[in-house]
């Protein structure tokens, strides 16, 4: 399907755009597209497609796997937990991200540079190392506990990781830069005189914010929501490391089916469903992709 259309597209393109030298057959550009798309199909789409196919074929052909998944109480619990933690973390991330992005646009040039560096820095440090640091900081023998005890705020150590709190903390920490950057990119685009202008037209500071600034920054917020939603549903590493086996989300559940219980039917079916949800989100919000990958201006 894709290949013949790509060739047809290439021909049409070669004829229409390159009127200087009419190209017979395939142009260099056609070759490049076709070659790279073939590699993508062979090395990416095929393995993914196999997962989808397996979910309908193994152990017996049909939609039996889906049927049993919908009736599986464990799966219900895991999906419920995933949705609950995802919405909580996405909500927190967007709220904090919006405020931080606002602080960024309001900050002076030096403060802004420093803050932006602080936002970008975590992106370059392995999430393994970051989670390691959280464990070191928050575990019962960790630094935070010893400080709280020394200050007399606690009598005995409490565990701040290997539970849902740790997972939420780790996920919010991971997702915050991905929320801050697109929101900030959008806010920086807003004509900074418009809120002033709104006030000269009679709006109070609150009205100027709600009626002018907020609607104009909404595309950034939507892009951030899109990015973080996709991320939060598929989180594997952070729940696995900071959840301590107590807070099992969908991705970790799938991994258990692959490595421990060897239930490929459940693994492929859940993977297919997760893929479907992700695909639907991308399909619905593909217009936000550009903003979601916008680079920050300093």
């Amino acid at each position: 399907m894709i290949l013949p259309s790509a060739i047809a597209l290439g021909r049409e393109f070669a004829g229409a755009r390159f009127q200087i030298a009419p190209v017979r057959g395939l142009s260099v550009q056609d070759g490049l597209v076709i070659g790279s798309v073939l590699v993508l199909i062979a090395c990416y789409l095929l393995p993914l497609g196999a997962v989808v196919a397996l979910s309908f074929l193994v152990p017996v052909p049909g939609i039996g796997n889906y049927w049993s998944i919908f009736q599986n109480a464990t799966v219900h619990a895991v999906v419920g937990k995933t949705l609950w933690i995802s919405s909580l973390t996405v909500g927190l991330t967007l709220l904090l991200g919006y405020i931080t992005a606002y602080a960024l646009v309001q900050a002076g040039p030096v403060a802004r540079k420093l803050m932006l560096a602080g936002v970008l820095l975590p992106l370059w440090i392995s999430v393994l190392v970051r989670n390691y640091a959280w464990i070191a900081l928050l575990s019962p023998g960790g630094i935070v506990n010893s400080i709280l005890i020394r200050w007399g705020w606690l009598d005995q150590p409490v565990s701040l990781v290997r539970n849902s709190f740790g997972v939420v903390l780790g996920m919010v920490h991971y997702m915050l830069p991905y929320a801050i950057l697109p929101i900030y990119a959008q806010m920086a685009r807003i004509d900074s005189t418009l809120p002033h202008l709104a006030r000269s037209l009679g709006a109070s500071p609150r009205q100027a914010f709600i009626r002018v600034f907020l609607p104009l920054s909404r595309p950034g917020l939507a892009a951030a929501a899109f990015l973080t939603s996709i991320m939060s549903l598929g989180f594997y590493l952070t729940p696995a490391m900071l959840g301590g086996g107590k807070t099992v989300m969908v991705a970790e559940f799938i991994s258990i089916q692959v490595t421990e219980t060897l239930r490929w039917d459940i693994a492929t079916t859940l993977s297919t469903l997760l893929l479907l949800v992700t695909g639907a989100l991308v399909w619905r919000f593909s217009h936000l992709l550009e903003l979601a990958t916008a680079k920050p201006k300093t």
Binding site: I99, A103, L121, P122, A133, H196, R199, F213
Partner: peptide, 26 residues
């Protein structure tokens, strides 16, 4: 200040501290 900017600024700074905290701690 057009909005309760002060509050937003301190919250924003706190978030940035939270973001770099585990990196500095190591």
């Amino acid at each position: 200040s057009l909005h309760p900017t002060r509050l937003a600024e301190s919250t924003g700074r706190a978030v940035v501290v939270f973001l770099v905290l585990p990196l500095v701690a190591i």
